[in-house]
């Protein structure tokens, strides 16, 4: 079954150039896909369209078998698809780690006692057990990244979209991320410039240029 299906998507920023034109893409349940591509070709735009942060001018966005158009449609989508931003500082806004991770589950209406359990379980999952009361803006870059990931995992998503997750990580933390991702049983889509990392955590890799997906090996040595 296809979890994400984009058909003939076209997108242009107001008064800007056309970023996507007639784009087709699909991700099946359980699939793990990596995307590489030059800067400024619309990789982030593409991810934002999937979760409805940007609305395409043409084309169909079908998520979990349903076409999505309105904000209400996408509310459901966002609880199932976790989107990690390029810069974790954009994502973390609560003073403490526990509150940060609890934010999503609480928005979904999960009772508080349950949320407390989710918080400690997810922190354990990303190897940050005991970080509940740490102040988010005083964390190191790597820790911020992991907290951002935990805040998505706490919503128990079925798919993850990760936008350049290794950009600010040292080799040690990249290893950590690889082992976390390999332990998860969900589908994900990762945009990255790190080919080695993508080959470790995904089954299929694409090269994205001029609004088209091409098999990575043929276009990227």
């Amino acid at each position: 079954m296809e979890v994400i299906k984009l058909e003939d998507i076209s997108f242009a920023y107001p008064r800007g150039k056309i970023v996507l034109h007639g784009l087709n893409f699909s991700l099946k349940k359980g699939e793990r896909v990596g995307i590489m591509g030059p800067n400024g070709t619309g990789k982030t735009t593409f991810l934002q369209i999937i979760v409805g942060l940007l609305k395409p001018q043409a084309g169909r966005v079908v998520i979990m078998g349903k076409e999505r158009q309105t904000e209400t449609d996408f509310y459901e989508v966002r609880s199932k698809i976790g989107f990690m931003f390029q810069d974790p500082d954009d994502q973390l806004f609560c003073p403490t780690v526990a509150e940060e991770i609890a934010f999503g589950p609480l928005n979904l209406g999960i009772p508080r006692q349950e949320v407390a359990k989710i918080v400690s379980r997810t922190l354990g999952l990303v190897g940050l057990a005991g970080f509940e009361d740490r102040v988010t803006y005083k964390l190191s870059g790597g820790e911020k990244r992991l907290v951002a990931l935990a805040s998505l995992l706490a919503m128990q998503p079925e798919v993850l979209l990760l936008d350049e997750p290794t950009g600010d990580l040292d080799p040690q933390n990249i290893k950590r991320l690889v082992s976390i991702l390999s332990r998860l049983s969900l589908s994900y889509l990762i945009v990255s410039h790190d080919k080695q990392f993508l080959q470790q955590v995904t089954q299929k890799q694409f090269w994205f240029e001029d609004g088209r997906f091409l098999p990575l090996d043929t276009f990227h040595p």
């Binding site: 989107f83 509150e99 934010f103 999503g104 609480l106 928005n107």
Partner: peptide
């Protein structure tokens, strides 16, 4: 946007 992605709908759920 990041908040919207995590289901923010205008109210602040209180954790503690």
């Amino acid at each position: 946007k990041a908040m919207v992605c995590r289901g923010f709908q205008g109210t602040f759920p209180v954790f503690r």
